[in-house]
């Protein structure tokens, strides 16, 4: 058994593993109940499965140009996939989500705290009738966001930016 046959069989095993991860994604997408859990299943072939397939293809092609292209593909995939997952996950959390089924909901606690702090701030303003000075906020929309919140607004925006 020479060297090329070993490399070819290794590449074939890699591609089979990648295809099996794709199959796992398909089964998970069909069986899991929720957007977030389906994301968990769908990210398997996006990172590891595609890396397996690209490694197998690189072991089969074995030229410098092709392997370089495959490495570029892997890098781009690893860079762009978390962006999409982040956006979809945030939209899924904000949308119709059964909060009771979540095991851990740190973002929900943070949002709740921010809501309570904002309500307290609002109540204090209403009680004291202390009109907050809108310092210099004249034209842009961004200048009006935090000036009337007093000191509480940076902490309010902090957890909700996640």
């Amino acid at each position: 058994m020479n060297w090329a046959a070993v490399v070819d069989w290794t590449g074939a095993v890699f591609m089979l593993l990648g295809a099996l991860l794709c199959l796992v994604a398909g089964i998970g997408l069909m069986r899991l109940p929720d957007v977030l859990t389906r994301m968990h299943a769908a990210t398997k072939p996006q990172a590891l499965g595609l890396l397996f397939v690209l490694g197998g293809a690189a072991l089969w092609l074995r030229t410098v140009v092709d392997v370089t292209t495959l490495i570029l593909i892997a890098i781009f995939q690893l860079v762009t996939t978390p962006v999409a997952a982040h956006m979809v996950g945030r939209a899924g959390y904000r949308g119709r989500l059964d909060r009771q089924r979540l095991v851990l909901d740190e973002l929900g606690e943070a949002i709740e705290e921010a809501e309570q702090r904002r309500e307290a701030q609002r109540a204090a303003e209403r009680r004291g009738e202390a009109e907050p000075v809108d310092a210099g906020g004249d034209t842009s929309a961004a200048s009006g966001e935090g000036s009337s919140e007093g000191g509480g607004s940076p902490e309010d925006r902090g957890p909700s930016a996640a």
Binding site: C22, R38, A41, A42, P45, Q46, G49, V53, A85, V88
Partner: peptide
């Protein structure tokens, strides 16, 4: 949207194979 992402990666795996 999630399924579309997964489908894109499956297609990429197919093209690689």
């Amino acid at each position: 949207a999630v399924a579309l992402d997964a489908l894109v990666s499956v297609i990429m795996a197919g093209i690689g194979v």
